[in-house]
């Protein structure tokens, strides 16, 4: 079939008894044609690489720009001609930022809130997912459906009343203590239906036989959960932990609303709330500002480098087909 394309039959010599087939443009044997096809394929592959590389560069441009701006002098940042590498590397921007920006305090707050909201979430999630995946009880499926439906409700619906609720607990106000500030930022976030859904899927994949075997051995449901299911679902639990950490690192709105004092705020609030303006002129110094954003971004990147697999799996398993 393929040969027909390339043989020119008008050139076929029918004089005499012999029939000779002449391939057009002499050199084009099957091998050269195959080679040519290969070349065009490589060409399109190279083109794909070029396009993808170009797009990838656009994707990481903000990070690169953040990094180099954080090392530039303010004059260079505001110059008409932008440079792609700082002419004078200003490490002093970072020194200044650590002096002005109370990074350690925000960092401690964020880590404390992240740890305790993660622990709480893990406990409620594991218990609920176990009940939904393993135990039989009346109304299980309809209750789970209600759980799933709550995911459609925008969080903003809850924020208003939750604010009122924590206010009525006395956790908000000018006399707010550190513990109260932490509680308001931790307790409401122990509810995560999405993670229950994710973990339930994981628990359901664990074969029934293991459960029956544990029952034969006289194990209780709880020790089965602790000794068999949790270790088997460890990758999902790690994913949940990391995503929860990232979520706390990114949370901005709720901490901004409920904290009364700067010392209780989280890292995002600290970053946006601090002014990096020059004390004399009042103009925002982008060098300092970008140095602070680098400091905030780097821990997340480190987390990503270490746990790439878990993060991408946790995010990617976002519930297509149950």
């Amino acid at each position: 079939m393929e040969m027909k394309k390339y043989i020119d039959f008008t050139q076929t010599n029918l004089d005499g008894q012999e029939i000779a087939l002449v391939i057009k443009e002499g050199k084009q044997t099957v091998e050269t044609l195959r080679k040519r096809e290969k070349v065009s394929k490589t060409f399109s592959l190279i083109l794909t690489y070029i396009i993808v590389t170009f797009l990838a560069l656009i994707m990481i441009l903000p990070f690169y720009w953040m990094l180099i701006t954080s090392l530039k002098t303010n004059d260079e940042i505001n110059a008409m001609t932008q440079t792609f590498f700082p002419t004078v590397v200003m490490w002093s921007n970072y020194v200044y930022v650590f002096q002005v920006f109370d990074f350690t305090n925000y960092m401690i707050n964020t880590i404390v809130v992240a740890i305790f909201s993660t622990i709480g979430t893990l406990i409620t999630t594991v218990l609920a997912a176990f009940a939904f995946a393993r135990l039989q009880f009346k109304g299980r499926e309809s209750l789970f459906l209600i759980f799933l439906m709550t995911m459609m409700i925008p969080g903003e619906m809850m924020v208003i009343s939750n604010y009122i609720t924590v206010a009525s607990f006395g956790w908000i106000g000018t006399d707010q203590t550190r513990l109260e500030a932490y509680l308001t930022m931790i307790v409401p976030f122990w509810v995560s239906v999405y993670y229950i859904y994710l973990l339930r899927q994981n628990f359901k994949q664990i074969p029934n036989e293991l459960y029956l075997a544990a029952k034969v051995d006289g194990k209780s449901d709880f020790s089965y959960l602790l000794k068999v299911m949790i270790p088997l679902a460890a990758p999902t639990l790690i994913s949940i932990t990391i995503l929860k950490f990232m979520g706390t690192w990114n949370s901005y709105v709720w901490p901004e609303l409920v904290t009364s004092s700067v010392e209780f705020k989280l890292i995002s609030n600290g970053l946006r709330g601090s002014s990096f303006s020059d004390p004399d002129s009042g103009i925002v110094e982008y060098g300092y500002q970008m140095a602070a954003t680098v400091v905030v971004t780097v821990p997340l990147f480190l987390l990503f480098v270490l746990f790439r697999k878990y993060i991408m799996r946790g995010v990617g398993r976002a519930g297509i087909k149950g």
Binding site: M246, W249, N250, S268, L271, R272, T293, T297, L300, F301
Partner: peptide, 9 residues
């Protein structure tokens, strides 16, 4: 894996 506020800046 970035902070929305930071990259917005």
């Amino acid at each position: 894996v970035t902070n929305t506020i930071a990259v917005g800046m």
